[in-house]
């Protein structure tokens, strides 16, 4: 669905490139994530893909057609969830969505009431957006991006500013959209979000992709395939995962007392990121 080859981009007043030779593909029905610290180039890459930034070098193809060859019909096919809430504060939530929906011709608009219900904003639907909290505005951002039923969705930090419950719900909605066949490109510096929803992630630092794989593979590759067992008595031992149930040392260790905890030694995505890039995601 999206193919990017050797993408370079330099902002007009900058000496150095913000994006340096990015290569990646995103398939239909895939959630692809860009993970990286602030200023890594995540949002810039998305801006190139949704045609806000144009003077890029390299090849970007959407549905097999060069991005530059797409006219305004391209915007019928994409939906963008911005990092920060951006709405007309003096209009109601419904008026905001109605206004932006009027620009689309697809006629596949989702039912407005169910969209508001989906993100628990039904009661606020007819209230001015200036009375919304940041989390409510972010949820309004989300439904504005999907209201015209686009094939490709870009979400920039989709759980930013949301409480854990609503962050969880938004992640579930993104997974629902994926199951409906949407192609989804997420940028985030939240490894939890990336781990929860992305089929594949790319680590991006200083405009370069350092690694691309599924979160599971990355965690396995950079962690230990082992479990750590801790007994109430304080004894701690590690055992390889392979044939764990047949390992006599493991079984004997379990017989030595009450088990306090057992956990795998798989790396977290953040640990993998630090190992691969030498940088922290919170940079």
């Amino acid at each position: 669905m999206i193919q990017v080859e050797n993408l370079n981009f330099t902002y007009p007043k900058n000496d150095t490139s913000t994006l340096k030779g990015l290569n990646f593909e995103i398939a239909k029905e895939e959630v692809f994530g860009f993970l990286g610290p602030s200023g890594a180039g995540k949002s810039t890459a998305q801006k190139v893909l949704y045609k806000i930034l144009r003077n890029y070098q390299g090849s970007v193809k959407i549905k097999g057609k060069n991005l530059s060859e797409w006219g305004k019909e391209y915007f019928e096919k994409i939906g963008v969830g911005f990092e920060l809430p951006n709405h007309y504060l003096r209009l109601t939530g419904k008026e905001n969505l109605d206004l932006f929906a009027s620009f689309y011709q697809s006629g596949e608009r989702k039912n407005l009431s169910s969209l508001f219900e989906m993100v628990d904003l039904t009661d606020a639907m007819n209230k001015p957006v200036e009375t919304y909290s940041k989390g409510m505005k972010m949820r309004l951002n989300f439904i504005r991006a999907i209201q015209h039923n686009p094939d490709i969705l870009f979400f920039d930090e989709p759980t930013s500013g949301l409480d854990p419950v609503n962050a969880y719900k938004i992640k579930q909605h993104i997974l629902d959209l994926k199951s409906q066949g949407k192609t989804i490109f997420v940028t985030t510096h939240s490894m939890e979000t990336a781990d929860n929803i992305c089929d594949r992630v790319a680590f991006i630092v200083n405009g370069k992709i350092q690694a691309t794989d599924t979160p599971q593979n990355l965690k396995s590759d950079y962690g230990k395939e082992a479990v750590k067992v801790e007994l109430e008595k304080g004894f701690i031992k590690e055992f390889p995962l392979s044939k764990l149930g047949e390992n006599p040392d493991f079984l004997s260790f379990l017989g030595q007392g009450e088990v306090k905890r057992i956990h795998t030694l798989e790396a977290t995505l953040e640990e993998v990121f630090i190992k691969v890039t030498g940088q922290s995601l919170k940079a």
Binding site: K51, I52, K72, E73, F82, H87, F100, Q105, R144
Partner: peptide, 14 residues
């Protein structure tokens, strides 16, 4: 200032 201008950059409106 409220970044709504950016939304107009990604809608099918010339």
């Amino acid at each position: 200032e409220t970044d709504i201008a950016k939304v107009y950059g990604v809608v099918p409106l010339t």
